[in-house]
Write a protein that binds this DNA or RNA. Structure first.
Lengths: 337, 337
DNA sequence: CAAGTATATGAAAACGTTTGCGTAAATTTA
DNA sequence: TAAATTTACGCAAACGTTTTCATATACTTG
């Protein structure tokens, strides 16, 4: 069980351990014959370099920390998968932490990762307020935020153009003939949600239709919340021909409430979401929605982080990606003339 | 940006760095007054211990490696979330890697984690054959497998009693009056699937009904595969009143195929799955299924691993947990007399 | 109060690498 | 062929901790 180290190899090969190190690192300061001989011995002895010791001297761990609110959330887990695969290709490993939607915990795991000397941190923050809480911490290690739009704050982030996406969604419904569109699930405590609502309002103004918003006063957008909001709404008679949700999860809750009321989608009511989580593609759901390009978000975020790791002095950058419409079967055209 | 180290603190405090170390580690070999003073200075200077350096001397990283086939799979991501939270409570961080269902990659990331000097590895293997491929590697670091039943192989694993679960599912359908039950999706290359099929056969024998199996010849159980199998099956007239699927994903594919054929679930056909992935609870799906207790699997696996880390000489252990029926709305009772 | 014991602290080794510097041998140049 | 240059390698420091051992001081005890 004794682990074989550089020194062991050096002893067997009859060279100094500097030579072994150089043989392995591909340094030019070494003779070709010795290199081959040393490498052969390394293989025979089953030598694996100790990454911890290397980190110690190189002052670099090749680990990047990832903080997400909750891994078991389709959006996050998909992002995580993309990030892990791409990071590994770039020579980095991922240390993953859940913040569990708790700002205090978010701060705690951030410190933990700093102590671990990760080379950088990518995080999907609990909310925009994370910025203030983490201001001192993000100064200690290169950090990139994903998903949450930090506006003009001096932070690095990559996000989707939430406003344009929601505007596009509204216009799509309009193009199908809908004039009475309920916007369901606007939240006040999230910049992302504010921006999405803006998109809806913009479209309404442009298309000259009356905005109609059902707010979500809770802190999260979950299936449960969508269900409750819709259920209450369906109690009274309503005149909307379409519901546009601030998130896919909400839309799935609406489906449930509609089902219970005998309201058919899309025959009786058109429905749209936002995010394009994996669920939404499933045949029994088949939700028309706005896609967040998760792979591109992941790749951009990592590229941005790697850049900052190389050149920490670079000014902060933001990348805003374009969302796109994903048309499935939850909306139908209605006569409108 | 200069990071403050133990030595810096020692210099300011006017003590040796051994003393600082002791003050922080809660060693009793230190005067109460110095301890307080040192700790205060640490806080003032914003000192964070360097985990890498500590790992170096302690020969322990407090990192555990997690290898999953694919993070963006509801079963895995839920397990990962449980594992991360519990591991952190135990003082460990998680380094997560995707094997992407590729045995070669699985082997590669395993070595990578060994080089990282993780204290232990938890893995959801690509398949039972992973055992042979990794035999030499699992000898290098404490390893626990999750999900896949390794039978009597000398490995540590925690799994669910797949046979009992599927038997229970079959019996449930029987109790609802079903006598003609199609078992859909049996795979040959997976021990887990073999055991599940065994459960179905056992029940059939016990209940004296004729087994009826539709095999899956591909390597994975996906929604797509379920859809294709069911679609082909539905082309000809069939007499089954219920379909029991080897996995929830398959069942969701069946729902799609049924929907397209105008077959209503559960009115025309009862349907069951296995795993209880998050999807299955969603209202438009509402699948009756067999639950794998994911939290318990995660906790048992980590406990088992931590034990082996403490006492590597312990003989191999296996834990088999009990699955349980989750009754939702995809099955109905039929007259049978 | 002397001798012994307990307590608080410092010095230094160790963990396994990478790398700057020095130098002997090999090669080139004049 | 002597001098200059290049090449190949070894030595040892450094990275930031923890911990063993030694030791000086303070406290106990008879």
């Amino acid at each position: 069980m004794a682990v074989v180290t550089l020194k062991d190899v050096a002893k067997v090969a009859g060279v100094s351990y500097a030579t072994v190190s150089r043989a392995l690192s591909g340094s030019p300061e070494i003779g070709e014959s010795t290199r081959k001989r040393v490498i052969k011995i390394c293989e025979e002895m089953g030598y694996t370099p100790n990454a911890v010791a290397r980190s110690m001297v190189m002052k670099r761990t090749n680990i990047i920390g990832l903080i997400v609110t909750s891994i078991d959330n389709p959006f996050m887990s998909e992002m995580t998968a993309h990030l892990e695969i791409y990071a590994r290709q770039c020579g980095y490993n991922l240390m993953v932490c859940n913040s569990s939607y708790d700002p205090a915990l978010e701060k705690e795991v951030f410190s933990l990762l700093v102590g671990r000397k990760v080379d950088g941190i990518i995080m999907i923050p609990v909310g925009s307020q994370s910025y203030d809480a983490l201001k001192t911490q993000t100064a200690q290690v290169p950090t990139v935020f994903i998903g949450e739009n930090m506006m003009d704050l001096p932070e690095n982030y990559v996000s989707v153009d939430n406003t344009a996406g929601m505007q596009q969604a509204t216009e799509y419904l309009y193009s199908l003939g809908h004039r009475n569109i309920l916007y369901l699930g606007a939240r006040d405590n999230s910049m992302t949600h504010k921006l999405r609502a803006d998109g809806y309002y913009n479209a309404c103004k442009k298309l000259r239709i009356e905005p109609n918003v059902l707010r979500n006063s809770s802190a999260r957008s979950s299936v449960q919340v969508g269900y409750e909001l819709a259920k209450a709404h369906f109690e009274q008679p309503f005149s909307e021909t379409a519901i546009l949700c601030a998130a896919d999860t909400l839309a799935i809750g609406v489906i449930q409430a509609a089902y219970e009321k005998g309201i058919r989608i899309p025959e009786d009511l058109s429905l749209m979401g936002f995010d394009n989580i994996t669920f939404s593609a499933l045949p029994p759901i088949s939700l028309t929605t706005v896609n967040q390009p998760k792979l591109e978000l992941a790749v951009s975020a990592l590229d941005m982080l790697l850049n900052r790791i190389k050149r920490p002095e670079t000014p902060h950058t933001k990348t805003i990606l374009s969302p796109s419409l994903v048309i499935r079967n939850s909306c139908r055209a209605i006569g409108n003339n």
